[in-house]
Design a binder for these strands. Structure first.
Length: 178
DNA sequence: TATACGATCACCT
DNA sequence: GGTGATCGTATAC
């Protein structure tokens, strides 16, 4: 089932945990790739110094203030893209960064990073602000209800040493892949 | 207009 | 453990 807008309108931490084990689906040139989400991070509000919206609404961050269920995609380090899903309610800037996915028949080291998975799934700024509840080009499907999830681990977010006290928040969630 | 730097990754020691 | 690639964005001037 395609996850509806309502799924993303909850607290960002709930969504970040809830997305683990769900399937990120990419439709590109009539081909479909399903990727199980294995790692996420939450970025919540202007008070979160690691969140791009900590400097308020700008041309880049305006998408984070949009409806939940939109894709927020930005370029990092001049060469990689990162995919986020906008959460909570309109005008409150928050999103979940997709940091890792696993695809059947694909070596995990091709998709175990936010830049790597966007490269593999051909996700770039063309899909910025895309509504992922439409079920076209890019969407997310719920996990199989009879699948038991392994324990969810939480830890500090990556690459945000500049974020003062916010870098201590345990807002990174991941499944342990054996 | 100019400049500093980053929600990364691959490759090196 | 460390470093370079490479360019959009935010901020300073």
């Amino acid at each position: 089932m395609i996850l509806p807008k309502k799924f993303y309108s909850r607290s960002t931490l709930q969504v970040a945990k809830g997305l683990l084990g769900c399937f990120l689906v990419r439709e590109y040139k009539s081909r479909i790739i399903k990727a199980m989400i294995t790692e996420t991070e939450a970025y919540i509000g202007e008070d979160d110094l690691a969140c791009h919206a900590s400097r308020g609404k700008t041309p880049r961050t305006v998408v984070m203030y949009d409806q939940p269920g939109r894709a927020y995609i930005y370029m990092v380090y001049g060469m990689y893209h990162c995919l986020n899903i906008v959460t909570e309610k309109k005008d409150f800037p928050a999103a979940v960064l997709i940091r890792g996915v696993q695809i059947k028949e694909v070596s995990y080291n091709k998709t175990n990073g936010p830049g790597k998975l966007c490269k593999f799934l051909r996700i770039d700024k063309c899909l910025n602000r895309w509504d992922i509840t439409r079920g076209e080009k890019l969407w997310i499907e719920g996990r199989d209800s009879n699948i038991k999830l392994p324990r969810i681990k939480k830890s500090k977010r990556m690459g945000i040493d500049y974020a003062k006290h916010c870098r201590e928040y345990l807002w990174r969630f991941h499944l342990t892949i054996k």
